[in-house]
Design a binder for these strands. Structure first.
Length: 945
DNA sequence: AAGAGACAG
DNA sequence: TTCCAGCTGTCTCTTA
C-alpha cells in the first residue's frame, strides 16, 4: 500500500483542509531524465523527462486524495546560499544538452494539468517546500513531500512525510534514521559535519555521515559538540573539529532549509482543481505521447469497463490475438473444471501454468491454475483470489466479502491432483521446475506432477545461444504475438499488487494466454527436436534433470545464521577502521565504494601513475591496477583492496545469506536456471550458491556456516581437472591422455614436454607457467593475455604458446576445426551432441569476431563437462535408492556435487556417488581418459571440501 | 539501466 | 593494418 492513498484524518479533519502535497519538481526532472531512455518528438525535441514528469502528474491527479497541492521548481543557480558561501553548488555541471529544452515544457505540463506551479527568484525549491510545510503544519494539515532528496529529510515530522515517486516508497522517520543514523530533527547537524560533495557543502574534513551521526548522538547537537571538541579522543578528529568549527557552522546555514520565505502565493490558493480534459489532451498530443493519449482517452470514456458477469468470458478482451479466434474460459464451477479435466484426458496432453504470489517457488502460494489443450482454447481456475480492485462490485455478486467466486482450493486440487499425477497424461509447462516445486510443496497441495515436457528446455536445446527462452520472448519470436505483460496486470515497484488481488477477468486473459502459448510452443518445438537430431539431448540431459533439480531446490541446505551474523559484525568493525585509515591516507573523505571517486583521489589528487579508460572516461581501479600500485609501496590502494574484499564478503555473503534463509525450513533454497548459460551449464540464483567464497582464507570461513543436520555430514565430491581431461580426449593428445591414465601431475607433465625440463627436476615457476597455458588454452588465450597472466613479455609468451602448439599440434587443429565448424554451421557441439550457437562468429568487427571465436573454442569443453555432470546427477538418485541409502543431493557447483548424508552411511554413499560420477559419460561416450572424482566430508561445507 | 568490481568454476 | 587482449555465470553498489 502506498502512502499516496492514505488520506489519514489528522487534527484538522473537521475543516476539510487536511492534506497538502508538495512536489519537488526540479528533483524529479533530473531523476526522470536519467532513468528514461531518450525520446524525441518528430521535430527532434527531446521529451523523455517531459514524458516521465507527465506520467507522474497523471498518476498524481488520479490518485490524489489531498485537497491542496503544488509543484515547486528551482530558479536560477544563484540563491541566498551563495552569499553565505560563494562556492555553494559550484561543482555542478550545466544540465545536459538534451535536458535543457525540456524545462519549460515540463512547466507547461504542470499548467496543463491545472496544478499550481511555483518558483521564486533567489530560493531553492527546498526552501519553498519547507515554508509551505511549516505553514500547513501550523494549520494542522498533513503534508506529503513528493521527493527523494535527502536534503528535504530534515522536514520529516509527525504529520509530515515524504514519498519517493520513482521508487514508490514512503519515507518516514525510520527511513530518515536509516539514511542519517539520527532522527529528522538532527539531520541538519549531521549534514553540517559530514558536508556534501554533490552540493559542495564543505563540512569538517575526515568526517562522513557515519562519524557525524555517532558524534551527534553522543553530544546531542552541533554547538555542544563544537564547544566540547577538546574531549574528542582521536587526535586528528579533535584537531579538525576545532580548526573547522566555523566551516561546520557555515555548512549548517547552507544545509538548513529556510522555512520563512515570504511566499508570493498563499497556501490557501494551492487547492486541487480538476484539470480541463481538452487542455490535457492537447498537451499530450503536442508532445506526441501516444500511449498516454490512449490511456487518458480510455479513462475519459470509462464506465464501460465492466465485464460480462459470472459466466464464461468468450473472446479474450483487451489482448490482441492476431492468430485467429481465441476462447478463454473462467472456471468457477466444479462441473466446468471436470469438463476441462476430461478434455485433457481425452487429448492425453495438457499445457499447465500456475499463478502464484511470488517468483520464489519456495515462498510462493498458489493463486490459480491455467490449462490449455488445443491452441486458442484455455481456461483459468482461480483458487486464491481475494477482493482486489473492487471486483466484487464489477461481478455484481452478493458481496459476501470472502473474495470472488471460485471453487474452493482444496476441492479443485483434489480434482486436479489425479490428472497431474496421471502417467498417461503429458503435462506441458514452460519452465516446469518452477511450477513443479510450487505444486509439490505441502502448503500448495503436495502434487507431484508427472510426466512433464518443458517448452523452455526445448527452446534451449534447439536454439541455445541465439536468444533468451522466456515465454514472452518466444511468443514474439515464433508467433509474432505480444503477451500481456505481468506489469500491466499487477503494476510494478511499490504499487505492485499481488496476483491474488487482480480482477478475475484480467487474470483470465493473462493466465490463459500463458497456457495457450505453451501449447502452441509445444506443437512448434517438439517436432523440431528429432529433425535437428537433438531429441536425445533433450530426453537424456535436460528433461530428466527437471525433477532432480526440483528435489534439490526443495531440500535446500542448512545454514547457521549466528555464524554469519558474527562474521558480519566483525567485518563491519574492520570496515569502519579501514575507512578511517583510507580517508586519512587520502587526506579527505570520499566514498570508497565509488571507483570514480577513488580514481580521482588516486590519479588526480595523489598523482599516482595510471590512465583513463573506456567510454565513460573514468579511471580504471580494478584489483590488478591497485595491486600494482600497492606493490610500488603505496598504502592507500592496498587498504582499498582490503576494504573491497571485506565489503564484498559482508554485503553479498554474510548479510545477504542470512536474509535468504527460509523461515519455514531454516534452510537456503537456491534456484537453478537450466537455460541461463549458453554452454549447457546450470546457473544458480536467488541466492547464487555457485560462488560462495573459497579462494581467500577470510572468505572460506563463510562455508563453515553451511552445515549438516544433526546426525548427518556433508559430502562434497568434485571432478578432478575435468575440462583438461576432456581437452585431451576431444583433441586426442596421446601424451596428455597417457599422463592422465598414469595419474601424473598434468601441469608438470605439460611443463616437461613444452619446456624440456625433466619431471624430476621440475621447478614451481615452470610448472606454474605451464598451468597458466593449460587453462589459457581452454579459453582461447592470446599471447598478450598469457603474458599479462604470468607476468612476462608478450614476445616470451608467444614463444611459450608456439612451443605448446609445436608439442601438441592436435590442440591447434582442434581450435581451427572448431572455429571452422562454427563458421560453417553457426554452432559447435559437445561430445554428447549438444549444440551451442555462436551468432557472432561471422561478425565483421574483428574484435567481436575474435570474442566469438574464443567462445566457440571454449563451448565444447565447458559444455561437455556440463553434460557429464548432468548425466551423473540424473543417475545418482536411482543409484542411491538401489543401494538403500538416504543421502540427499543438495547443490551442484559445475564440477562438484554436495550431499547431506546420515553419518552411518558416509562410506557407502561416497562409493556410490564416486562410481556414478566417474562413469557418467558411459555408455554413450567411451572416454579415452579416466574421469576422477575426489570426495571429502565434514560437519560444514568448509570441512567437506 | 549500465558500468565497474568481485565472487565462483 | 585496424580492432582487443580469457570462457561461463550472479550480485552489489554507484552513477547518470
Amino acid at each position: 500500500m502506498t502512502d499516496l492513498a492514505i488520506p489519514e484524518d489528522q487534527t484538522a479533519a473537521s475543516n476539510g483542509d487536511n492534506h497538502l502535497y508538495l512536489v519537488d519538481g526540479s528533483g524529479y526532472i533530473f531523476r526522470a531524465f536519467h532513468a528514461l531512455p531518450s525520446m524525441n518528438r518528430s521535430d527532434g525535441t527531446p521529451t523523455n523527462a517531459v514524458f516521465g514528469f507527465t506520467n507522474m502528474l497523471l498518476k498524481l491527479v488520479e490518485d490524489i486524495e489531498a485537497d491542496h497541492v503544488a509543484v515547486i521548481f528551482d530558479t536560477k543557480r544563484l540563491t541566498f546560499r551563495n552569499e553565505i558561501f560563494a562556492d555553494y553548488k559550484a561543482n555542478r555541471d550545466e544540465p545536459p544538452e538534451d535536458l535543457r529544452p525540456q524545462f519549460s515544457l515540463i512547466r507547461d505540463a504542470v499548467r496543463a494539468f491545472n496544478v499550481p506551479c511555483l518558483e521564486m527568484e533567489g530560493y531553492e525549491a527546498d526552501d519553498l517546500i519547507a515554508t509551505y510545510a511549516r505553514q500547513a503544519k501550523e494549520k494542522g494539515m498533513r503534508v506529503t513531500i513528493v521527493s527523494s532528496d535527502k536534503d528535504l529529510m530534515q522536514l520529516v515530522d509527525d504529520g509530515v512525510d515524504m514519498y519517493d515517486p520513482m521508487k514508490n516508497r514512503a519515507i518516514g522517520r525510520d527511513e530518515v534514521f536509516e539514511k542519517f543514523g539520527v532522527g529528522p530533527e538532527k539531520v541538519v547537524d549531521v549534514q553540517s559535519l559530514a558536508g556534501d560533495s554533490v552540493d559542495n557543502v564543505p563540512g569538517v574534513p575526515g568526517i562522513g555521515i557515519k562519524t557525524a551521526a555517532q558524534l551527534i548522538n553522543e553530544y546531542g547537537d552541533l554547538d555542544t559538540l563544537l564547544a566540547r571538541a577538546e574531549e574528542i579522543k582521536q587526535p586528528k578528529r579533535r584537531q579538525n573539529l576545532i580548526e573547522f568549527a566555523e566551516q561546520a557552522r557555515i555548512s549548517r546555514e547552507l544545509v538548513r532549509l529556510k522555512d520563512d520565505v515570504s511566499v508570493e502565493e498563499p497556501l490557501e490558493r494551492l487547492t486541487v482543481e480538476d484539470p480541463d480534459d481538452a487542455t490535457v489532451l492537447s498537451f499530450l498530443k503536442e508532445m506526441e505521447f501516444k500511449r498516454l493519449i490512449a490511456r487518458f482517452e480510455a479513462e475519459l470514456s470509462d464506465g464501460g469497463a465492466a465485464s460480462a458477469g459470472g459466466g464464461p468470458v468468450e473472446g479474450s478482451v483487451g489482448s490482441p490475438s492476431p492468430e485467429g479466434d481465441v476462447a478463454y474460459e473462467l472456471v468457477q464451477e466444479i462441473a466446468d473444471l471436470e469438463r476441462w479435466i476430461a478434455l485433457a484426458r481425452a487429448e492425453g496432453t495438457v499445457a499447465v501454468d500456475t499463478e502464484t504470489s511470488s517468483l520464489n517457488a519456495m515462498r510462493a502460494e498458489l493463486v490459480g491454475v491455467s490449462m490449455s489443450v488445443v491452441p486458442g482454447k484455455a481456461c483459468y481456475i482461480p483458487l486464491g483470489h481475494t477482493d482486489g480492485e473492487a471486483q466484487g462490485s464489477l461481478l455484481g455478486d452478493s458481496g459476501n466479502g470472502d473474495g470472488p467466486k471460485q471453487i474452493p482450493r482444496d476441492k479443485a486440487l483434489g480434482l486436479l491432483k489425479p490428472l497431474f499425477e496421471d502417467p498417461s497424461v503429458l503435462k506441458v509447462l514452460h519452465n516446469a521446475k518452477y511450477d513443479l516445486l510450487v505444486l509439490a510443496r505441502g502448503a500448495n497441495g503436495g502434487v507431484n506432477v508427472t510426466p512433464v515436457d518443458d517448452t523452455m528446455c526445448m527452446s534451449y536445446v534447439l536454439e541455445g545461444g541465439l536468444h533468451g527462452h522466456g515465454l514472452d520472448e518466444l511468443s514474439e519470436l515464433h508467433f509474432g504475438h505480444t503477451n500481456i505483460k505481468f506489469a500491466d496486470v499487477c503494476g510494478k515497484g511499490k504499487t505492485q499488487i499481488p496476483f491474488s488481488a487482480v480482477a478475475l477477468d484480467k487474470a483470465l486473459d493473462y493466465a490463459a494466454e500463458d497456457a495457450d502459448m505453451t501449447v502452441r510452443l509445444h506443437r512448434t518445438l517438439r517436432p523440431e527436436l528429432p529433425k535437428a537430431g537433438l531429441l536425445t539431448v533433450y530426453e537424456t540431459l535436460e528433461r530428466p534433470l527437471i525433477p532432480v533439480l526440483t528435489r534439490m531446490e526443495k531440500a535446500g541446505i542448512k545454514v547457521d545464521p549466528q555464524i554469519l551474523r558474527d562474521m558480519s559484525k566483525d567485518f563491519e568493525k574492520r570496515l569502519d577502521e579501514l575507512a578511517v585509515e583510507i580517508h586519512k591516507l587520502a587526506g579527505e573523505e570520499f566514498n570508497i565504494g565509488s571507483p570514480k571517486q577513488l580514481g580521482e583521489i588516486l590519479f588526480d589528487r595523489m598523482g599516482l601513475p595510471g590512465g583513463k579508460k573506456g567510454k565513460t572516461g573514468a579511471y580504471a581501479t580494478g584489483a590488478e591496477i591497485l595491486e600494482d600500485l600497492a606493490a610500488q609501496g603505496h598504502d592507500l590502494p592496498a587498504r582499498v583492496l582490503d576494504w573491497r574484499q571485506l565489503s564484498k564478503l559482508k554485503s553479498t555473503y554474510t548479510d545477504a545469506l542470512v536474509e535468504a534463509i527460509n523461515p519455514e525450513t531454516g534452510r537456503i533454497h537456491t534456484s537453478y536456471s537450466m537455460t541461463g548459460a549458453s554452454t549447457g551449464r546450470l546457473s544458480s540464483n536467488d541466492p547464487n550458491l555457485q560462488n560462495i567464497p573459497i579462494r581467500s582464507e577470510e572468505g572460506r570461513k563463510i562455508r563453515t556456516a553451511f552445515v549438516a543436520e544433526p546426525g548427518n555430514k556433508l559430502l562434497a565430491v568434485d571432478y578432478s581437472q575435468i575440462e583438461l581431461r576432456l581437452v585431451a580426449h576431444i583433441a586426442n593428445i596421446e601424451s596428455l591422455k597417457q599422463a592422465f591414465r598414469d595419474g601424473i601431475d598434468i601441469h608438470a607433465q605439460t611443463a616437461s614436454e613444452v619446456f624440456g625440463v625433466p619431471l624430476a627436476e621440475m621447478d614451481p615457476i615452470t610448472r606454474r607457467n605451464a598451468k597458466a597455458i593449460n587453462f589459457g588454452i581452454i579459453y582461447g588465450i592470446s599471447a598478450f593475455g598469457l603474458a599479462r597472466q604470468i607476468g612476462t613479455e608478450p614476445g616470451v609468451a608467444k614463444k611459450y604458446i608456439d612451443a605448446y602448439f609445436e608439442r601438441f599440434p592436435g590442440i591447434r587443429d582442434y581450435m581451427n576445426e572448431t572455429k571452422a565448424a562454427a563458421r560453417e554451421t553457426g554452432y559447435v557441439t559437445t561430445i554428447f551432441g549438444r549444440r551451442v550457437h555462436i551468432p557472432g562468429i561471422k561478425d565483421n568487427n574483428p574484435a567481436r569476431r575474435a570474442f566469438s571465436e574464443r567462445a566457440a573454442i571454449n563451448a565444447p569443453i565447458q559444455g561437455s563437462a556440463a553434460d557429464v555432470i548432468k548425466r551423473a546427477m540424473v543417475r545418482i538418485n536411482p543409484a542411491l535408492a538401489d543401494a538403500g541409502l538416504a543421502a540427499k543431493m543438495l547443490l551442484q557447483v559445475h564440477d562438484e556435487l554436495l550431499f547431506e548424508v546420515p553419518e552411518a552411511e558416509i562410506e557407502k554413499t561416497t562409493e556410490v556417488v564416486r562410481r556414478v560420477m566417474e562413469s557418467a559419460a558411459e555408455p554413450v561416450v567411451e572416454l579415452s581418459v579416466p574421469l576422477v572424482a575426489d570426495a571429502g566430508t565434514g560437519d560444514s561445507w568448509a570441512e567437506a571440501h
